[in-house]
Design a protein around this nucleic acid. Structure first.
Length: 298
DNA sequence: ATGAGGACCTGCTCGC
DNA sequence: TGCGAGCAGGTCCTCA
């Protein structure tokens, strides 16, 4: 499940159940799911069995468990990954890639503990175990995501630094928003939604943005991401669900994404779909004017 | 540094 | 009914 609100929804679900639990068994059903764990699937399991989870954290679209020996289990959901605490009465997904069981039960619980399933239809996502943390933007993160910038909902997100880095680029605005080394957590849906809210065109050269426009964009980004987190994320189908398999309902609040031909909710002009960066971009041709071609520099 | 393009996958929908 | 094309919310790599 892709973008920040969906990953945060999953993180919250995991944080309510997993910390304090001890991992009993780990079964890797598809090796591709742990391909980024260099030591291989056997080592992946061996590193986890008997360890307790102390916390569940997130930056951008990545989330990780902190273990009692100081290691991390880092996960990315790719395009179709799910981390589920499934109802044992229901049939297993055919796309189950990694199964984890827990030992013992929490206070007041009865019956066997839930399992943790990593389910991933397209297998672009994956899990790995790593030992080293690095401090980036004031937070200790697993070393493999050292290159990932802070996300706009983090306390330590620095709008000044973002503004400087954004305007020093010579690229288009949406391309920059999707660059996880500049700002993290934003994908195709929320980029289009924030650009619509801020009335900015996706191909606006970042160097021409005025400070006020960037402030507005950041405010709209925080707002749309926050709204979507409160709604439990966006989903169009059962591929994007929380740890219990439930869909979020933010899709009803989308103003641009996926609304080709439908009237803009501000000005009633039909929303248009463009092919951009090998994917779809949705925008209002009236509220979000295409930037003038840049004049050749001196 | 930038960006275009492809690779990595499965499954759904659409038009013929 | 079958079949190929196109599409899907991501990331990473190479090459120019």
């Amino acid at each position: 499940m892709p973008e920040l609100p969906e990953v945060e929804t999953v993180r919250r679900g995991l944080a309510a159940y997993v910390p304090g639990r001890t991992i009993g068994t780990v079964t890797v059903l598809n090796e591709r799911a742990v391909r980024r764990h260099a030591a291989g699937p056997v080592d992946f399991g061996a590193r986890l069995v008997g360890r307790s989870v102390t916390d569940v954290r997130r930056r951008g679209k990545y989330l990780w468990f902190v273990l009692d020996d100081g290691a991390f289990v880092l996960g990315h959901l790719g395009m179709s990954g799910q981390l589920l605490l499934p109802d044992p009465a229901l049939p297993e997904s055919p796309h189950l890639r990694v199964r984890m069981t827990f030992i013992g039960r929490g206070p007041g619980e009865c019956g066997p503990p839930r399992e943790l399933h990593f389910v991933d239809q397209r297998t672009f996502g994956g899990l790995l175990v790593c030992d080293t943390a690095v401090t980036r933007f004031g937070v200790d993160v697993p070393a493999p995501i050292e290159h990932i910038a802070s996300d706009p909902l983090e306390a330590g997100f620095d709008p000044e630094a973002f503004t400087r880095r954004l305007t020093s680029r010579r690229t288009g605005l949406k391309r920059a928003l999707l660059d996880q080394t500049l700002i993290s957590g934003i994908g195709n849906i929320y980029a289009d939604e924030a650009l619509w809210r801020a009335r900015l065109h996706y191909d606006r050269p970042t160097a021409t943005l005025r400070r006020g426009q960037i402030d507005t964009l950041l405010r709209q980004l925080r707002e749309v991401l926050g709204d979507a987190v409160r709604a439990g994320g966006t989903s169009f189908d059962s591929l994007y669900v929380d740890v219990n398999g439930q869909s979020g309902w933010f899709s009803r609040d989308l103003d641009a994404y996926g609304r080709t031909g439908q009237p803009c909710s501000r000005c009633a002009t039909p929303i248009r779909r463009d092919s951009f960066m090998n994917r779809s971009s949705y925008s209002c041709p009236r509220c979000q004017r295409r930037p003038r071609p840049t004049k050749p520099g001196p």
